[in-house]
Design a protein around this nucleic acid. Structure first.
Length: 582
DNA sequence: GCCGTTTTCGGCCCGACTGTTTTCAGTCG
């Protein structure tokens, strides 16, 4: 019998989400639906292969995975499907799932539309509204018909534009707008600078942001709301009241503003920073102690007293929890911490070991990159242009690499205040081999090995082979994903981590905001396996040297401290840590 | 469907808003 490849954790999670969605439309108990979604979240966040855990009989070790789900996962692995999912697929039309994505239309209403009017998707819904049949149902009215028709039109328009209308923007764009808005509101109102902040996923430095949350504690909320409405950054205000407003930026990013009296700013900031899973876990734990947590305060049910805090740290203290940095608030064990970990900070980075120059596809010279890096406070950089097989006319032949090495040596000798290292970002070939011969590679101070071609040609074996090479210091962007546009290669990250640990190879956290590769979950697993991580900019111009900030964000979300990061060390220390102590 | 300092059954996080209703269910974040 032909064996099928194991589903990835992401694929397993998708199946469970679909099961939850279809169960919900089938009228299942809401907690059962929630159980599927929670298990999906846990599985998506698990760094090890969940398929392997299922085979080993240990999958119920995961939070929220019990014997029933285990049975379903066994079936998924053995047969490629889950019987009840097939039944639900036959019973619940695909189009019904689609219309629950319309704002204002949830599973309960969709279920009734299906049961009572036979509506099985967007087209049937539109027809029923046009024939005024929807308003005849109890609980529906003319206003609901109007809103649903608008929502259908917007969904069609978004589809015509080639997206699904629920876009997430990359963090740098979101933070640029969010930080500017916060600064503007602060300047316009004279509010205490410690009582206004960007919250939500932007404050957690997530990879992408769905909308911005701005929270404030002010004695005069109306002034903050007025400043928001007057801001040039806000294209349209959709709602406005005495406690806040919501609107849309010129680029279509939604913004929610909430304002409370200063004495409860800490509660508000905690609530809107999230994540949802973090907050749910906090509230569940609090309930067991007779406390009810919300954005308005912490209610002690025994005394009836609501405790409010101006500072977020006091919210955590009152709940008996360790305050942790926002980047950790993803319900990945942070609530069990007895002490907040010292996370890596931008100032901890001493070097940047992945950047390009005009020798390949960069825009600046070796000297310009080195000078810019020095001005940013770095002690050392490695110049790592693409290697001989890169193509695009940007390839660096062996002869050109020798010339480049000489140029780097020259710049290093002339420039004070920074060490400039000769390196390369070497392609890993389809056979796992590298572009330059071993003697030339051995001349380099620093070698990044990356997959840039033939992503479907066994990337795991090729990367593992690169780890075995004595001159390879680090694997660059190990999974090759581009956030929102390209899935990771089918690489077994566990196997790569194991190979890196065994061979003393470092793994990169590429700081390009659309890469952030390794992902935080894998970076954390690598650290736990004893692998050192490199946080690099992959800069192609002087200004993108700043991309290490996004790599730092991923590292912090991976719980990494300075000791876990190779280039948080002085070069003299790091050079001795390279494999073989070269 | 999961889970246990309320422990193998009976619960399971919180509040605002909306539109539909005359007190609330559904949706959303």
């Amino acid at each position: 019998m032909a064996s099928r490849p194991d589903p990835t954790n992401g694929e397993i999670a998708e199946v469970l989400v679909e099961l939850g969605d279809r169960y919900e439309l089938d009228g299942a108990n809401v907690h059962r639906v929630l159980a599927y979604r929670r298990a999906a979240d846990t599985i998506r966040d698990t760094p090890r292969s969940v398929a392997a855990m299922v085979r080993a009989g240990t999958v119920t070790d995961l939070d929220g995975v019990g014997t029933t789900l285990e049975e379903k996962l066994v079936a998924l692995l053995d047969t490629g499907g889950i019987p009840v999912l097939e039944k639900l697929r036959a019973k619940i039309p695909e189009g019904l799932l689609r219309i629950t994505k319309l704002p204002g239309l949830g599973p309960k209403k969709a279920r009734r539309l299906h049961a009572e009017l036979g509506i099985d998707g967007p087209d049937a819904l539109r027809r029923a509204i046009e024939e005024r049949r929807v308003r005849a149902l109890s609980g529906f009215g003319a206003r609901t018909e109007e809103r649903l028709l608008e929502a259908l039109d917007r969904a069609d328009a978004a589809a015509a534009d080639g997206h699904d209308g629920a876009e997430r923007v990359l963090l740098p764009r979101a933070r640029e707008i969010g930080d500017a808005l916060v600064a503007e509101l602060r300047d316009a109102t004279g509010i205490d600078p410690d009582r206004i902040a960007l919250a939500g996923s932007a404050r957690r430095w997530a990879e992408t942001v769905h909308d911005l949350d701005v929270v404030a504690g002010a004695d005069d909320p109306a002034a903050v709301v007025a400043a928001f409405a007057a801001s040039d950054l806000i294209a349209r205000v959709d709602r406005s009241g005495e406690h806040g407003a919501s609107g849309v930026t010129h680029s279509g990013l939604g913004v929610d503003l909430r304002v409370v009296p200063p004495d409860r700013f800490g509660n508000l900031l905690q609530h809107f920073t999230g994540s949802r899973a973090h907050n749910v876990a906090i509230r569940e734990a609090a309930v067991k102690r007779g406390l009810r947590v919300s954005e308005h305060g912490i209610l002690d049910e025994a005394t009836g007293v609501t405790h409010r805090f101006a500072d977020e740290a006091d919210v955590y203290a009152h709940l008996g929890l360790t305050w942790v940095d926002p980047e950790l608030r993803e319900h990945r064990g942070e609530l069990e911490l007895e002490e907040a970990p010292r996370l890596i900070e931008p100032g901890d980075l001493r070097g940047d070991l992945h950047m390009h120059t005009v020798a390949s596809d960069g825009r600046a010279t070796v000297e310009q990159m080195a000078t810019a890096a020095r001005d940013r406070g770095l002690e050392y950089v490695a110049i790592t242009d693409h290697s001989a097989s890169h193509g695009f006319g940007d390839a660096v032949s062996a002869e050109q690499l020798r010339t480049l090495i000489a140029e780097v040596r020259d710049v290093d000798a002339r420039l004070d205040g920074i060490t400039v290292l000769a390196g390369s970002e070497v392609n890993i070939g389809t056979d796992g081999g590298l572009d330059y011969d071993d003697d030339l590679l051995a001349e380099l101070d620093w070698v990044v090995a990356s997959v840039h071609t033939a992503f479907d040609r066994d990337p795991t074996a090729r990367i593992v082979a690169a780890c075995e090479h004595p001159s390879v210091d680090v694997v660059g962007h190990p999974t090759g994903r581009l956030i929102g546009s390209r899935a990771p290669y089918a690489v077994d990250v566990e196997a790569v981590i194991a190979a890196a640990a065994r061979t003393g190879t470092f793994l990169e956290i590429n700081g390009s905001p659309r890469r952030r590769d390794l992902h935080e979950v894998h970076a954390r697993a690598a650290r736990d396996a004893g692998v050192l991580l490199c946080i690099d900019s992959d800069a192609h111009r002087p200004d993108t040297l700043a991309n290490t900030r996004w790599g730092i964000a991923t590292a912090r979300r991976a719980w990494l401290g300075p000791d876990d990061v190779a280039n948080a060390r002085p070069w003299d220390e790091l050079r001795r840590l390279r494999k073989g102590g070269r």
